[in-house]
Design a protein around this nucleic acid. Structure first.
Lengths: 218, 218
DNA sequence: GTTTGTGAAGGCTTTCACAGCC
DNA sequence: GGCTGTGAAAGCCTTCACAAAC
């Protein structure tokens, strides 16, 4: 019988498991579109180039969602993953840094669909404040971060400033009460232990490909 | 004495090491700006929240760049990392998928500075072909991928299409002779063994933060 | 018969700790 | 004195393989 685990101890679960749950969600979405009702871990693995034992283990941290001899109900599994990841509630983002990347993300569907919602785009450059973003928001003064976080009930801060400004922006986000920060500036940012700050450096992936081109047989 | 290793066996070096080299490059850039001449692995670690033994080990795969009792020369170290990652040569990109993300990336500085150069933005949607991109390129017909790859000596293919189209685009990139592919569509793509195809799903990071918000004490 | 959930094994990565060198 | 480069140890993650369940 399918059942959630009583309690989820976040510390005992690897970040790798969490990021794979996101991947599984994409896979399950595709299976749903294809009209499948049930799927075994083995079939999921074969279709999407994954490991079946790992799928089972990742899911088992959170409950018993499968039926032995049968597999997983696709629609149910999707709902379980959504609840585990907390994607059943709205998550409100504020983007600080209205440069190329910031403006792009604010109307990138990944950031503004499926319960993620951009509720503010801020910048400290006076020449940018007041500009209309492609998504129909106006760029606001970064000084107003604290009030905006409170009034618009922001959950996640997104940093798309220069690397030089990133740490100060992160500090002010923490100060304003945000507990999660996603940093796209190419520099590490530090945050107190109760805050989760992740850095995503898009250039790292390009540089990995460059390494491959430079050294793998040609 | 600083010296490169004779031969780099790509298979024996972890992808994690390579991506950390990119991180080290960002750190070293900051140290250079700050005017430091020499840095020890310990100081690097302290400043940027890294592990000093790991830094030494990562670098040691590629040669002996440090001086015992002193540390690393910052300017030299930067140059070594650049050469290891193959960033001393121009890398030409073609972006397929002229939607929000594709257009954003083509004028995102991370993708168009420091020897990376976007030489084409393609789409299969006739209503988009001929549009001007923010970077001054025109959107071209995705059918022309093979000739563009050859004529403009493209090194890296970037996929910013819908997930449904991603695999077909990847296949055509491989067919056209590309050996490295960076996929931003939220779906796995498969490629032959001699091709390195990396998928970067930006939403995964948001969903990780959502998990943290849902389960870490609040 | 099939497939899940899971202990045990194997493999990989990080960290420690120190010899060797400056 | 200090720091690098590196074998050994510790820790973590993945994969195997099978009992339990359907």
């Amino acid at each position: 019988m399918a059942a959630y685990k009583r309690h989820i101890d976040t510390d005992s679960i690897s970040e790798l498991t969490i990021s794979r749950l996101s991947i599984y969600l994409r896979c399950v979405d595709q299976l749903l579109e294809a009209g499948l009702e049930t799927v075994s871990s083995q079939e999921l693995a074969k279709r999407f180039n994954l490991n079946s034992a790992q799928i089972r283990k990742d899911l088992a941290y959170f409950g018993e969602f499968g039926v032995r001899g049968v597999g997983y109900n696709v629609r149910e599994l999707r709902q379980y993953i959504i609840e585990i990841l907390g994607l059943d509630r709205e998550r409100r983002l504020v983007i600080v840094g209205a440069g190329n990347l910031g403006l792009a993300l604010c109307h990138y569907s990944g950031f503004s669909k499926g319960n993620f919602l951009v509720v503010g785009v801020l910048d400290s450059d006076p020449t940018r404040i007041g500009d209309a973003t492609p998504a129909g928001l106006l760029v606001e003064d970064a000084e107003r971060l604290p009030e905006i976080v409170t009034q618009r009930r922001v959950d996640i801060g997104v940093i798309t400033t220069t690397p030089a400004a990133a740490q100060a922006v992160c500090d002010r986000m923490v100060q304003a009460g945000l507990r999660t920060v996603l940093n796209f500036a190419p520099t590490r940012v530090r945050a107190p232990e109760h805050v989760l700050a992740k850095t995503v450096d898009l250039k790292v992936h390009l540089e990995e490909l460059s390494f491959f081109l430079a050294h793998a047989g040609g």
